[in-house]
């Protein structure tokens, strides 16, 4: 199911800022893992997670993906999404949420197994047992 998400034209080349309690780098392989209140910020998008692993691209100067896990919340100015884990590919500006995805847009909530958000286009596609609950605007 295709929905509008985020309402923003995210610039994939905006600086990505990652803050966390700690970062552990494996000296042998160079694998970098942020852990403890990890917050990824780019433009107006904020993604928080318990743990984020940095996946480098072809050269180690370039980060290809950020693999977040341990309960992820993605917030943009207008919408928010929660899931068990997420993978954010920086170059394409695409976030793939997997596991108990829950999207809240205003008063409506949509649940699914998996969701792919394109931050640059501001759209989201959800699949896997999508369940939408509308609360009519009148009912309090």
């Amino acid at each position: 199911q295709q929905i509008a998400f985020g309402g923003l034209q995210q610039d994939p080349t905006a600086p990505v800022e990652v803050t966390a309690d700690s970062l552990a780098v494996d000296q042998a392989t160079g694998l970098a893992t942020f852990s403890g209140n990890v917050l990824i910020g780019q433009g107006e998008m904020r993604m928080s997670a318990a743990q984020v692993v940095v996946v480098y691209g072809t050269t180690s100067e370039e980060i290809e993906r950020l693999e977040a896990s341990g309960g992820v919340t993605l917030a943009t100015p207008s919408d928010a999404a929660e899931a068990d884990s997420a993978s954010y590919t920086i170059a394409s500006g695409e976030v793939t949420l997997t596991g108990n995805v829950l999207v809240t847009q205003g008063a409506n909530t949509i649940a699914a197994e998996r969701m792919v958000i394109d931050l640059t286009a501001g759209t989201g596609r959800m699949d896997g047992r999508v369940k939408t609950t509308f609360t009519p605007s009148g009912a309090q």
Partner: peptide, 19 residues
Amino acid sequence: GQYLLVFNAGVKLVYVPQK
């Protein structure tokens, strides 16, 4: 038994994607 280089007490990384 791995050797880890741990940055703690608050870490901040700023990555600017190449164009």
